[in-house]
């Protein structure tokens, strides 16, 4: 093997990679946060006794589970602007896609978390005269959310990986920055290796934080691991 490694391009352009990483983090965080209330609304709709409402929410979740996120992204970037007759920026299309995708997954976590609580919690809340909304807000959700935190973080990590698809519509996140650098410098081996390493280190750190949090929650009596 006679390839001679040369990391000059990395040391000269690390600021571009850092900006890319910042954009990746922004895209993930923003779509995850926006997906939370949407996901909760979907979960409540799915748990609703009205068949039409829960059916519709179920379809929404299944749709996002059963189609590749890349198709969704292309649809929002290329098809939606034609239907609405407006311009959609790459950043907006990516944010929209990832938010809706995230809400579908978050909805399932909320639903599982709410359903996992003992029925006695509902009965108790009702017995002291709370309405459905009050019981949900004051008794059920606070307990359910604590159990769900580690699963939410796992989902956020998955979302971070999925956010790399934004590169295909030229949103300047980390992978796009890498493609740009590699094309300009002809140093694809160095650039892609370093970027893969950055992703790996970032995601492993996030998983470690999640694991530690999980252990602490388990110790405080809110078991998420069995």
């Amino acid at each position: 093997m006679d390839y001679s490694w040369n990391f000059d391009i990395i040391s000269r352009s690390w600021d571009l990679l850092l900006l890319g990483l910042a954009n990746s983090v922004y895209l993930t965080a923003a779509s995850f946060v926006l997906g939370l209330p949407l996901g909760l609304a979907l979960a409540l709709a799915r748990l609703s006794r009205r068949k039409a409402l829960s059916g519709l929410a179920g379809w929404y979740v299944d749709f996002f589970r059963a189609t590749p996120s890349l198709v969704q992204l292309y649809w929002f970037y290329f098809a939606l602007p034609q239907i609405l007759n407006v311009q959609i920026e790459p950043g907006t299309a990516a944010l929209l896609t990832l938010t809706l995708l995230s809400s579908a997954f978050v909805a399932e976590i909320f639903r599982g978390g709410i359903a996992s609580l003992d029925k006695g919690q509902w009965d108790g809340a009702r017995a002291i005269g709370m309405s459905y909304a009050q019981a949900m807000r004051r008794v059920i959700l606070p307990q359910a959310i604590k159990r769900m935190i580690p699963i939410f973080l796992e989902r956020a990590i998955e979302l971070f990986k999925t956010s790399t698809i934004a590169s295909v519509i030229s949103f300047p996140e980390l992978l796009f920055a890498a493609q740009d650098l590699a094309a300009r410098s002809y140093r694809s081996l160095e650039v892609y290796s370093v970027v893969a390493l950055i992703f790996m280190v970032t995601l492993i750190s996030l998983s470690q934080i999640t694991r530690r949090l999980e252990l602490r929650l388990a110790r405080s009596g809110e078991t998420t691991t069995s």
Partner: peptide, 11 residues
């Protein structure tokens, strides 16, 4: 598990 699939495809 920690390298996004799209990144490893590119790699």
């Amino acid at each position: 598990r920690n390298i996004p699939v799209l990144v490893s495809i590119m790699w």
